[in-house]
Write a protein that binds this DNA or RNA. Structure first.
Lengths: 230, 230
DNA sequence: ACAAAAGTGTTTTCTATACACCCATGG
DNA sequence: CCATGGGTGTATAGAAAACACTTTTGT
């Protein structure tokens, strides 16, 4: 169909971000409480209208920083939701993004209105505005899918971490037990981890060696599209 | 950011479709010659502006039928392109789709202006309008990716086909030789093919048995998210 | 009879999985 | 000294890969 001025549509464009964080066996997602109608005071994914002179990714980053102050470590496009009736204000199409943050960025900054932005465990979610429940569901599927074919973890863990953190991350995300020895073998064979001299002991038990991701190797693997069966 | 009337943006929304077809060792993509400026007479992906009261997928189907008459066998969302400056008319965000057609739908219908819609081998592409070269590149990567983890083929081959067609499809898409015996073993183990009584002989050589996809089994595998290493 | 494409099994190698005990520390 | 979590190796089974000759037809 050819475009003429009279046909200029009234479709509005928004972005929404599903941002995941991980800490000690818990996957959390960042939500904000809505200030305005519709769905005033309901929890929703951070996001908002795209400005005419900003890229989509800039829009997400801006909204995230305005609404939550959280610094994103990894961001990719998730899916575009455009069904009629998904927004009571009219026709609103939303480009959703998928983000990950490290635990140290987990704390909501001072600039954040703590009553407005909050981390929720994905196991105990409040009722969400718009079709955000659906968006979140797809994001969780993406997260679980990604982890089985990409050496994710770099984006969710601190710079230095005990191996058990990585293991726990996988058991949490995949929601099943994994054999520690076999898991370590597989990770080791990828050569993405550097073992550090340092150790930490958390509570009782033998202290754990710290590891860090070998960034060079890690991003090389990602580029090669490593298949990483867990 | 809160939305007020004065901020109502002037972002336009389009859809574009990358439709692939396959015939005798060749992957083709469906392009249309543009009727209007900008890029008048240049080849472009079929697509156009989304109407206010149609879903995104409806918009793609409508544009495809208007511009090419081609009947799509499979359609999924690919990616949303929204960079500033990707369209000289202003801010235009495009939701792109990825489609597959069977060879029998390959013929452009009578309703189609044959000089306007045309199949191009992905190895001999013309210069494309807008950022469609980039969109096509991403679609080709998706196609190659999909084939290694989903038993694709159903959507690209005729109802009945000789096994060699499936094999050739894979060698073409993956752009490398595959061992016929190992390949057959793998496909057979999935139990997605039914061997028919019928045979065809094309030119000289021993006639080939025809196969068809066992739809039930095929879609069951897809739902289970089969991992299918080739 | 020969060229061209279809069809078919076995062996070897690699990878995934199953499995249990010792080590270092804090309380 | 004991409870807690960290760390490590081997054996088996299953999957992937390598590999070549026979069959059926058209010309």
């Amino acid at each position: 169909m050819h475009f003429t001025h009279s046909m200029r549509n009234k479709i509005q464009l928004t972005v929404d971000a599903v941002v995941f964080g991980y800490e000690s066996g818990n996957i959390s997602v960042l939500l904000v409480k809505r200030k305005y109608e519709p769905y005033k005071n309901a929890w929703a994914l951070p996001g908002g209208f795209v400005l005419e002179k900003e890229n989509l990714e800039e829009a997400v980053q801006r909204e995230l920083s305005e609404e939550t102050g959280v610094k994103i470590n990894y961001l990719e496009q998730l899916y575009t939701f455009g069904d009629l009736g998904r927004d009571p204000r009219g026709r609103v199409v939303s480009v959703s993004y998928f983000g990950l943050v490290k635990p140290n960025a987990f704390e909501l900054t001072a600039s954040t209105d703590a009553t407005r932005a909050k981390w929720f465990s994905i196991k105990k979610l409040p009722r969400l505005a718009f079709d955000h429940k659906k968006i979140l569901k797809i994001a969780i599927e993406r997260l679980q899918g990604k982890i089985t074919y990409e050496p994710i973890g770099f984006e969710l863990l601190d710079k230095k971490f005990p191996f058990s953190d990585l293991e726990k991350l996988y058991t949490t995300l995949l929601d099943r037990e994994i054999d520690r020895r076999n898991f370590k073998k597989k990770i080791t064979s990828l050569k993405v981890l550097d073992e550090l001299e340092e150790k930490v002991s958390i509570g009782r038990g033998r202290p754990a060696s710290l590891f860090s991701f070998n960034e060079k190797r890690y991003f090389q693997l990602k580029k090669e599209g490593i298949i990483f069966e867990i």
